[in-house]
Amino acid sequence: MLSGIPLLPVQASTLAPQVDALYYFIVAVTAFFGILVAILVTAFALKYKDDTGLKVGAPITGSVPLEIGWSLIPFFVAVAIFAWSATIFFQYTRPPENTLEIYSTGKRWMWRFQHLDGQREINTLHVPVGRPVKITFTSEDVLHDLYIPAFRIKADAIPGRYSSIWFEATKTGEYHLFCAEYCGTRHSGMIGTVYVMEPNDYQAWLSNGGVTGGSMQARGEQLFQQLACTTCHLTDGKGRGPSLAGVFGSQVKLTSGQTVIADESYIRESILAPQTKLVDGYQPLMPTFQGLVNEDGVLSLIEYVKSLNGGAGAAQASAAPATAPAQGERR
């Protein structure tokens, strides 16, 4: 029976072997110190045992060199672990260029994913092997957490802001996808499967995906018309609202005098709470679209705004690298 117990999860991303190597190192370090103390305690307990209770111990009160030694050695070991950990952590926070963008919304108790071409799926996620994938996500209600153990990644889905994770899958197969932040009744049912596919199979899946309503960009454009955004956000910049061409990823000056980078979170905030960070030179005329457009719609609108930057790589021209995106932006 014991041989049937797995000890490590499958390594299926580029980060997984690195995380596991650090894990082995800490296992070795802690085992060394743990066994050392255990051996000493056991040896002393056996050697200096006294059944009468009437003897007294040696008059030893301490040793300053020993104290300094066993303060400094653990400290340096800890600093070494810290430094190694931090280098891995920065890989988590800095996705490579040209990631495949996927958007997701967590909602009690399901994960919805949207691909740029318009495919939508619930509690399943199809990704190609060997290509960096970045998932940008938020929550529609309470906190959730997107966790894929085989890739060793997770991040909280926080209502009101975007988080992101990235991974490059290294092995085709099916892997667990969990919600790791407690979210109420069916928290343990908020799970799904990640399908890592060969690039060709992934392309085939994309084209058989039964897309309705076109790509995310097309859906965004449609919403942009329907919600009458076009009335004010004229492309020539003469409207009551600023032109959105070239805005994504740029520095925007606000009426408060501050500048912000127009990333996903800023665009989202400007749609749902337009008065919070008003662009310099414009009147606070825009109404909130809270309740008129859902999180998936907001993501499509963002994708459309990105496309207004022009050029084929627009969707990838994320503001991400400048803003340490894996953890989302604090406001």
Binding site: V37, F44, D51, G57, A58, I60
Partner: peptide, 29 residues
Amino acid sequence: SFLTYAVAVPSAVKTFNWTATLYRGAIWM
């Protein structure tokens, strides 16, 4: 993270001191 590693040191110090207290004691079980 760094400060968390720093707080591990005083806990380690205590453990080593308890272990060293046993050394050449007369341990009554």
